[in-house]
């Protein structure tokens, strides 16, 4: 079987298209590269969904933490503490148990115990917790002068937040947030390793890598392939976030643009 045929059979195997059965014998390098790559679809999906949704929630929670009212502040603080303070591994375990009991009482919540919905939800909450802490830190260091200048121009409330505070907060938080994004994508490999079941042998890159490691009894081929995929993915993330960073800082004179993270990395889990 040529490598192109393998690509045709297995490139979308992780989504359930193509050959129904995984290769069982005579494993080739091509099969491993194609199937592990197919699994990367899920890693990208989990990471992207959680990142986009988590961004919005993180902004809200960061504002909550900075709020004067304890009704907003306390729950936000606890949210961040629980999701930053416990291993994702354990969060997955509890989420799965919780979703199981939830769907017993509300049948409409059935999809929650499947990885594409349930695990994405956990990752979303997890990254929201970490990002909220980053945003909160950035919010505290928005220069007073900028806020005062905005007031002098008559900007208050929502317009002041949207046009002055929020962009500056993002600008300050961006390097640390880039790190968070990288680690979120790395954390997606935990989905099928613990907690959520893989249905119909549709799994992420780590699932297929460990499948091959189990079948060939040789961990030295599939895991390095997985590592290479992730190094490539990390480079892509860094490139995208770097482009956003440049656009966030486009108004600054070239010499003042921070070349390096001002904020020391907010690393994860």
């Amino acid at each position: 079987m040529s490598c192109w045929e393998i690509v045709a059979d297995y490139a979308f195997r992780s989504l359930g298209y193509g050959e129904r059965l995984l290769p069982r014998s005579d494993f080739t390098l091509c099969q491993q590269v194609v199937l592990i790559g197919s699994g990367m679809i899920w890693n990208v999906y989990f990471g992207a969904v959680a990142l986009v949704a988590g961004f919005a929630l993180a902004t809200l929670v960061a504002l909550g933490k900075a709020a004067r009212s304890p009704w907003l502040r306390k729950p936000s603080e606890w949210f961040v503490f629980v999701f930053r303070g416990s291993p994702l591994f354990i969060q997955f375990f509890f989420a799965y148990f919780f979703f199981l009991s939830l769907k017993q009482s509300v049948p409409a919540l059935d999809p929650l115990t499947s990885a594409p919905v349930g695990a994405a939800l956990v990752l979303f909450l997890n990254t929201a917790g970490y990002s909220a802490e980053i945003f909160h830190g950035a919010l505290r260091s928005v220069p007073r002068g900028e806020v005062e200048a905005a007031e002098a121009y008559g900007l208050t409330g929502w317009p002041r937040f949207r046009r002055i505070v929020w962009p500056t907060m993002l600008r300050l938080a961006w390097p640390a947030y880039t790190n968070e994004a990288i680690f979120l994508f790395h954390a997606t490999t935990l989905v099928f390793l613990s907690g959520f079941p893989a249905a119909g042998q549709k799994g992420d890159a780590l699932y297929y890598a460990s499948y091959f490691a189990d079948q060939t009894f040789n961990p030295f081929v599939p895991y390095p392939i997985l590592a290479l995929y992730f190094i490539a993915l990390t480079l892509v993330i860094v490139a995208i976030f770097g482009a956003v960073n440049r656009s966030l800082n486009r108004h600054l004179p070239a010499a003042r643009r921070p070349a390096r993270p001002r904020f020391l990395p907010q690393i994860v889990r």
Binding site: F185, H186, L206, Y223
Partner: peptide, 9 residues
């Protein structure tokens, strides 16, 4: 660049 899990394995 490599997830710690993949590295550990």
């Amino acid at each position: 660049g490599v997830p710690d899990i993949a590295f550990f394995l």
